[in-house]
C-alpha cells in the first residue's frame, strides 16, 4: 500500500465527515450514561457530571430505574436481546447459504434463464410495508405468526436477493478458470467451489454476511407486525420504553441502542481487512 500524504483541505473534510458520522454515536453513548435528570435537560448536558450505569441495569432489571424516582418499565430486555440474536443469526446464516449457492449457480452454470437474477432482485422492489400486512394474514393462517421460525422465514426471504446479488458480483469477478484448474487437477465441482471459490471470495463473503446481519438486526417493521408479545427483538423493545408517567425513557433507550451496536462494531473490526473489496481482485494474476 503506497503511503500518501493528505492535503490539508482533504484532511479537514475528512475530519468534518468523521464528526458528522460519529456525533450520533457519541450522543447515544453519553445519553446512555446520563441519569434521568440529564436526559432532556435544557441546555443540553454534553457529558454527564455523574455518569451512571442505571440505564443499562434497567434493561435487565426494570425496577432499577426507580432509585431516580422514575417507574413504569414493565419488561426486561433480555428476551428481546435473545430474540434478536436468534432471529438475526439464523436468518443471516440461511440467507448467505442460499445466496451463495444461487450466486455460484447463476454465475457459473447460468442456472435458470438470463432473467433469473433480475427476477430475484425484483422481489426487493416492493416496499416491505406493502407486503407486511398480507404476510400477517398468511402467517396467521399458517400458525407461524409470533414465532421465531416465522420471523426467520421472512428475514431470509427479504435478504436473499441482496445476498445473491452481492455474492454473485464477487463470484463474477473471479475467473472461471480458477475452478476449472481445480477440476482438471482432480477435484469435483462441489469441492472446487468449496476449496477454491470460497477462500477467494472470502472478503466478499464476510462483507455480505455483515451487511445481511445488519439488515436483519435492525428490522423493526416485520418484527413489529409479525409479533404479538411472545417473541421480541431489540428494535421493537426500543419502542416500548415509553411510560405513562415519565414519558420516553431516553436513557434506557440509548442504553439498549448502545448494546445493539456492540456486536456490529465488533464484527466490523473483526473483518475490517476483508471489507475492502480489493481483497478479491487479483485471484488470477495477469
Amino acid at each position: 500500500m503506497p503511503s500518501r500524504r493528505l492535503s490539508p483541505l482533504l484532511g479537514l473534510l475528512l475530519i468534518l465527515a468523521l464528526v458528522v458520522t460519529l456525533f450520533p454515536v457519541f450522543w447515544i453513548v453519553m445519553t446512555a450514561l446520563k441519569p434521568p435528570t440529564d436526559w432532556n435537560a435544557v441546555p443540553a448536558v454534553w457529558i454527564p457530571a455523574k455518569p451512571t450505569l442505571v440505564n443499562f441495569r434497567t434493561l435487565f432489571d426494570p425496577e432499577a430505574i426507580r432509585e431516580y424516582g422514575v417507574g413504569g418499565v414493565s419488561q426486561s430486555a433480555s428476551a428481546a436481546v435473545f430474540g434478536s440474536l436468534l432471529a438475526s443469526t439464523v436468518s443471516t446464516a440461511l440467507s448467505i447459504l442460499i445466496g451463495l449457492l444461487a450466486a455460484i449457480g447463476l454465475s457459473r452454470y447460468s442456472s435458470g434463464s438470463t432473467a433469473t437474477p433480475l427476477i430475484i432482485l425484483s422481489g426487493r422492489m416492493f416496499p416491505p410495508a406493502a407486503i407486511a400486512v398480507p404476510f400477517v394474514i398468511i402467517f396467521s393462517a399458517a400458525h407461524i405468526i409470533d414465532t421465531y421460525s416465522g420471523l426467520i422465514a421472512i428475514y431470509v426471504a427479504a435478504t436473499v436477493p441482496f445476498s445473491t446479488w452481492m455474492l454473485k458480483s464477487f463470484v463474477d469477478d473471479l475467473p472461471r478458470e480458477i475452478e476449472e484448474a481445480a477440476m482438471v487437477d482432480g477435484q469435483s465441482r462441489l469441492m472446487a467451489h468449496l476449496t477454491v471459490t470460497m477462500p477467494l471470495i472470502r472478503g466478499g463473503l464476510f462483507a455480505t454476511t455483515l451487511f445481511i446481519f445488519i439488515l436483519n438486526w435492525s428490522d423493526f417493521m416485520f418484527a413489529l407486525v409479525l409479533s404479538y408479545g411472545r417473541i421480541a427483538t431489540i428494535p421493537v423493545q426500543l419502542a416500548k420504553y415509553v411510560t405513562a408517567t415519565a414519558g420516553t425513557l431516553y436513557g434506557v433507550q440509548a442504553a439498549l441502542a448502545v448494546l445493539a451496536m456492540i456486536p456490529l462494531v465488533l464484527a466490523g473490526f473483526a473483518i475490517q481487512s476483508h471489507l475492502a473489496r480489493g481483497m478479491t481482485f487479483g485471484a488470477i494474476k495477469r
Partner: peptide, 20 residues
C-alpha cells in the same frame, strides 16, 4: 471420464494459480 481423472494436465493461459 470426469476432468480430473483423464490424466491430462492443462496450463491455463492466465495460469489460474490459486492466490489464496
Amino acid at each position: 471420464v470426469p476432468p480430473g481423472r483423464r490424466n491430462v494436465g492443462l496450463v491455463f493461459q492466465d495460469y489460474a494459480v490459486f492466490t489464496s
